[in-house]
Design a protein around this nucleic acid. Structure first.
Length: 233
DNA sequence: CTCCAGGGGGCCA
DNA sequence: TGGCCCCATGGA
C-alpha cells in the first residue's frame, strides 16, 4: 500500500520530467531498486547526527554509534551539549574519527539550539540556511545538503563520492573532482525541483554505488545502467 | 593482511 | 584553486 503510493507519486513526478539522461537514470534505478526510504532515522536530530557521523564512514559503524546514544536517551540537542566531550567521544567511537566528530556534532548542535530548533529553521530561505550551515566548522557541502534535503526538506541535490564515480563512468562529467556545486547544478537544473524526487534519487545513487560491480571497478557489466555507461577498455 | 566507508579542514605551492 | 595529509573504527 505504502509502496504503491510512493511508486505512483514518483511515477507522476517522472511523467512531468523532461526526457533527459538524468530522468532516464532515475527511472532505471527506481525500477530495479524501488523506494529506499531515506534518510534512515526516526527524528530530525537523529538524521542530522547521522549525516555528520557518516562522513567518510561506513553506515554500519554509524548505526552502532547512534544506537549507543539512543540507549542512553541522548538523541537530543541540549542533552548532548551538556555532556562532556570525553563521554560523547566514547559513545560515538564505533563511527571513527570520534574526537573530531565530537567537536563537529557540538558545533552543529550549538547552532541548532541557538536558532531555536528544526521547526523554526524550516521556514527560512534555503540559500541563507545553506550559507549558515557551511559556516559551521565540520559541516561541508555534502553534510549541509544532506541536512537541507533530508531534515529541512529543501529541494537541494546531494552530491557524494558515489555520484561522482557514477557520472564519471557514464561519461557525463570529465573528472570526479569536478566542482561540487557544478555537479549539483547539473541535477537541479535538469530535474523538477522536488524534495521527494531528490530524496529518492540520491538514495538510489548510493544504493547503486554500493553494488560490487560499480565499486571502484571500471568494468561495469551488470548494473542497471550498464548500457548507458561509457565503454572503458 | 589490506582496503575503504554516504567528508572536511588545514596547509602549502 | 589543486593536491596532500590527517582524522579512526570495523566489516569484507
Amino acid at each position: 500500500m505504502l509502496f504503491a503510493g510512493l511508486f505512483l507519486k514518483c511515477y507522476n513526478i517522472a511523467l512531468k520530467m523532461k526526457k533527459n539522461i538524468f530522468s532516464e537514470i532515475f527511472h532505471r534505478l527506481y525500477e530495479v531498486y524501488g523506494p529506499q526510504h531515506w534518510w534512515p532515522g526516526d527524528s530530525p536530530v537523529e538524521i542530522a547526527i547521522g549525516a555528520i557521523l557518516t562522513q567518510n564512514t561506513n553506515w554500519m559503524n554509524v548505526e552502532k554509534a547512534i544506537e549507543n546514544l539512543k540507549k542512553k536517551d541522548l538523541l537530543d540537542a541540549k542533552k548532548l551539549l551538556s555532556i562532556e566531550d570525553d563521554v560523547l567521544s566514547d559513545l560515538i567511537k564505533p563511527a571513527g574519527y570520534y574526537r573530531i566528530k565530537t567537536a563537529r556534532l557540538k558545533n552543529f548542535l550549538r547552532w541548532l539550539v541557538t536558532k531555536g530548533g528544526f521547526d523554526r529553521l524550516r521556514n527560512k530561505d534555503v540559500t541563507e540556511l545553506r550559507n549558515e550551515l557551511l559556516k559551521i566548522k565540520g559541516i561541508g557541502k555534502e553534510t549541509a545538503d544532506s541536512i537541507l534535503l533530508y531534515v529541512l526538506e529543501k529541494p537541494i541535490f546531494v552530491i557524494d563520492a558515489y555520484t561522482r564515480r557514477i557520472l564519471k563512468r557514464m561519461g557525463i562529467i570529465e573528472a570526479e573532482n569536478m566542482e561540487y556545486d557544478e555537479i549539483r547544478n547539473l541535477f537541479e537544473s535538469n530535474l523538477p525541483r522536488d524534495v521527494k524526487l531528490f530524496n529518492e534519487y540520491h538514495a538510489l545513487l548510493v544504493k547503486l554505488g554500493k553494488e560490487t560491480c560499480l565499486k571502484r571497478n571500471p568494468q561495469c557489466t551488470r548494473c542497471p545502467i550498464n548500457d548507458m555507461c561509457k565503454r572503458i577498455t
